[in-house]
Design a protein around this nucleic acid. Structure first.
Lengths: 165, 165
DNA sequence: CTCAAATAGTTAATTAAGTTAAGCAAAATA
DNA sequence: TATTTTGCTTAACTTAATTAACTATTTGAG
C-alpha cells in the first residue's frame, strides 16, 4: 500500500471494471426483468459459447446443442459458488417462467435445467443491446489488443482457479 | 449468444475474474475480520496509490499525504455506488474501530474519514499477503504483457465511466 | 445383497452489499 | 431572506452469497 505497483493496480482495476460492467449489465437486463447475474446463469443454461467454461465444450464437441440441459451443480462448479446459491437463483428464474426443471428419468436425484421458450425469447431480445454495448465499449482497442488482453486475462483466471481460492 | 465473439468473452472473463479475485481477497482479509469490499474502502481512505482514482491525485500532487482524510461522498462517487451504501460500510468499519469520523469545523455537514492507528496496522498486516498473492497470480505474464493489459483495461474502464452506466 | 458413502438438491438462518425514498441539518445562492 | 444544493442518515427492501442440517437417490465395497 506504499508505492504504485502494476500488479496491485491491475487487481483493483479488474474489480472496478467488473462492478461497472455489472451495473451496465443491469441497465440492459432490467428491460426484461432480470439481473446481470440471472442473465449470466441463463447464458450458462443456454450454452452461450462465450462463457469461458462452455467455450471448451463448444469447441471440443461439434455436436454441441444449445439448451441441451444442465444441472444446478454444474453451474455451481463452473461459477465456483455454492449449490444453495444456484437453487435460489434458479427459483427466481423459474418463478419468472424463464427456466424449467425437468426430472431426469435415469437418475431421479437430478433436475435438468432448460430455458423455456419465453426464456430463449428474453435472451434473444436483449442480445442486440449486449452486442451494441460491447462494440462501443471496445471500440478504442484494435482486434489484436482485444485478443491479447483476453488471452492474458484467461491465463490469470486459469491460475486463480487452479490455486483454488 | 450465437457465435463466439471476443468482446462478449472478454466481458464474461472479466466478471468471472473479479468474482475469483473477490473470493481470494476474502481469504486474505478475513484474517483481520474484514471483507474485500471493506478492505478496498480502507485503501481508498488511506490513499493507496494503486487505487485508480487515487492514483491520479498521487501522481499529480507531490505533497500528497497518506490518510489525509476523505469524505463518504468522495468514495461513493469514485466507486460509483450510492451514498447510503458507503454509510453502511463506514458504520461497520467504525464499529470495528478501523475508521474514525471527524466533523469538519469549516463545514459542519462534512465528516472527514480517516483510518485509526488500528486501521493502519490492519492494512500493514495484510499487505505482505496481498503482495505475495499478486506476484504469484501474475507470474505467468511478462512485465510488458502486464503493463499492456493494465493499460487496455484502464482505457475500457474510462469509456465505461464516461458513458455513465 | 445389503448397508454405508457419495451425490443432487432443498430449506433455514444469516450476512454483506447494494438499492430507493424520505428526511434532517448546514451551506450556498438567487 | 427564502430556496436550492450538499452531505449524510434512516428505513425498508432486494439480491447474492454463505454454512449447517436435512431428504432422497444412486453407487459401490464387503
Amino acid at each position: 500500500m506504499q508505492s504504485p505497483a502494476t500488479e496491485e493496480k491491475l487487481v483493483l482495476t479488474i474489480l472496478e471494471l467488473a462492478a461497472a460492467l455489472n451495473r451496465r449489465g443491469d441497465v440492459i437486463s432490467e428491460q426484461v426483468g432480470i439481473t446481470t447475474q440471472q442473465w449470466i446463469i441463463m447464458l450458462y443454461i443456454y450454452g452461450d459459447p462465450n462463457i469461458p467454461y462452455i467455450g471448451k465444450k463448444y469447441s471440443a464437441d461439434k455436436h454441441f446443442q444449445h439448451n441441451a440441459g444442465m444441472l444446478a451443480s454444474d453451474i455451481a462448479e463452473a461459477l465456483n459458488v455454492s449449490r444453495p446459491n444456484i437453487t435460489n437463483i434458479i427459483n427466481l428464474l423459474t418463478a419468472k417462467e424463464l427456466v424449467e426443471q425437468q426430472p431426469d428419468e435415469n437418475d431421479r436425484r437430478r433436475k435438468i435445467l432448460r430455458l423455456t421458450p419465453k426464456g430463449i425469447e428474453v435472451l434473444k431480445r436483449i442480445e442486440p443491446f449486449r452486442r451494441k454495448a460491447n462494440l462501443a465499449l471496445f471500440s478504442a482497442l484494435s482486434k489484436e489488443q482485444l485478443e491479447a488482453t483476453l488471452h492474458n486475462l484467461e491465463i490469470i483466471l486459469q491460475i486463480l482457479k487452479r490455486v483454488g481460492a
